[in-house]
Amino acid sequence: MEQRPRSFYILTVFFALFILFLYGPTLTIGILSFQGPQGGLTFPMNGVSMHWFFDLFEQQAVGDIWGAFRRSLALGLMVMVTTVVISVMGGLAFRKRFRGSGALFYLIIASLVIPSILISLGVGLIFNQLGFKIHWATSGFGSQLTWTLPFGLLIMFAVFNRFDKSYEEAARDQGATPWQTIRYVVLPIIAPSLIGVALFGFTLSYDEFARTLLTAGSYNTLPLEIFGMTTNVTTPVIYALGTLTTLFSLVIIGACMLALMVMARRRARHGSDAGRGV
């Protein structure tokens, strides 16, 4: 192997600093959440304890965070499933140009670039004027989809742009119906990307703040609850909550990565069955 140029070492240091910049603050609050009962919001550590984690389980200390967590979890799953289904359908639709597809495409981009607070305000106003009650599972759900769907669709566009159409032609030649082609040929091939879409759908919803702000109604989601805490909680209990919910996100990300790896390994093991047919 050829000698590494000097720029490699400089850039490695730069990259390491960037990673430190990304993760350093989060690790810091991870450490600080183990503050002793008398500890403050910053170093030095005043002893080491699990005090602030136990505090999270006491209703009066922090409000209804477990209810908020349950709502965020439910909403995240709803958004995830909807995002996957609609993105796949949308991805299939956009493989062919149809009348109005250009306009719909620009609507998807608009959904991505529009300031979140406008969605929040607009949806809130509509529900208000129509006399509907805003609720996280209706107005909040729809508002979050305007943020997760563009990501899901962009992934699907990228996937279908690289999709080898001869697989479908082969299935059709063997007599598969259009539905069978999708169910037994297209979906299994794009399955790994669907895990990616699901990951985006869940995590973007679980952490969404601005679009839910005016559309969640009287029951807060977790990010709203955490933001409320920042104005009136001045103890490390907020670090403990931050650490727990970040760990939860990491578990979700890890599970998705694991699923992808298992899938890739299974594919490698089974390999192609070309020439081994009946």
Binding site: M89, G90, S101, L104, I108, S111, L125, G142
Partner: peptide, 21 residues
């Protein structure tokens, strides 16, 4: 076919993006 597959997407974008704006 295209609109049939894209209709859920179009509906959501209409209801929660176009209408609010």
């Amino acid at each position: 076919m295209g609109w049939a597959q894209a209709s859920p997407l179009a509906l959501i974008l209409f209801g929660f993006l176009v209408l609010p704006i």
